[in-house]
Computed example of a mutant assay.
Amino acid sequence: MGMISEFKEFIARGNVIDLATAVVIGAAFGKIVTALVDGIVMPVIGYLTGGVSVSDWKYVLSPASMDAAGKEVAEVAIRYGAFIQTLIDFLLIAFVIFLVLKAYNRMRKPAEEPAVATPEDVLLLREIRDSLKR
């Protein structure tokens, strides 16, 4: 079997198409949640913290200064605000995906299990038990 025919067989499987669809929808969904966080959640948090954007939060180790030659030396800071904003993005995405999956599982009907036929020896034992009870 040639490589091209193997590739066609691989692509023709339903799982690959489903996975590709999920990746595309997931990327679009991530953009929606990021817009929600950037446009609604973070401005509210910024308002509550006195107008400071969360992504601007940082701990300055060494402030910006001028060296002996007159060149500006950039500040050295730990920018933990960007990490917190990304963490909030992640938690919101995870929560919304949880809610979507929970709704999907609630809507999906459980598969009906086929009735299992009782083995013949069990039926005979039941008949013997019932006749002994009389």
Rank of each mutant, 00 (worst) to 15 (best):
L19Q: 04
A82D: 15
F29M: 12
V100Q: 03
I97T: 03
F10H: 01
V60S: 07
A69P: 00
E6F: 15
V23M: 13
V24I: 12
S5Q: 15
A12M: 08
A103K: 10
G14F: 06
V16R: 01
G46C: 04
I45Y: 05
T118W: 00
V37N: 06
V52D: 02
I40D: 02
V96G: 01
S53G: 02
L99C: 12
A111H: 04
K58F: 09
A69R: 04
L19K: 06
K71D: 15
M3A: 10
L124T: 11
A103I: 13
Y104G: 10
L124M: 14
D130M: 11
V44W: 04
E120M: 10
V76L: 13
D89V: 04
A68G: 01
I88H: 08
E113F: 10
F95Q: 01
S65I: 01
P119H: 03
V100N: 01
L125M: 15
F7G: 00
V96L: 15
G70H: 02
V96C: 06
A28T: 00
T21P: 02
P119R: 03
P63E: 08
L125Y: 13
A117L: 08
R106N: 09
A20P: 02
S55P: 05
F7S: 08
G46T: 06
M107T: 07
F10P: 01
F29C: 08
G70P: 09
T86K: 05
S62G: 00
S5V: 12
V41S: 08
I78H: 07
T86I: 01
T49S: 14
G51F: 10
V16A: 07
L19N: 07
E112Y: 07
I40M: 15
D18N: 09
P119K: 04
T49E: 06
F90E: 10
V41Q: 11
T21F: 07
I45T: 01
I78Q: 08
V52I: 10
D121M: 14
A115L: 13
V33R: 14
G26D: 02
A64I: 05
A12D: 09
K71V: 07
K8Y: 09
S62E: 07
S65C: 04
M42A: 05
L19S: 09
D67H: 05
K58Y: 08
V37M: 07
D38L: 12
A74P: 13
T34M: 15
T118C: 05
V96P: 02
S131D: 11
I84T: 09
D38K: 12
L19R: 03
G50L: 12
F7I: 15
E112V: 15
W57C: 01
A35N: 13
S65M: 11
R129Q: 13
T21Q: 09
R79W: 09
V23D: 08
K58V: 06
I88W: 12
Y59D: 05
D67N: 14
R106F: 14
I128E: 12
M107G: 13
I84A: 00
T86D: 15
I78C: 09
Y80K: 01
S65P: 03
G14T: 05
L101Y: 08
V37K: 05
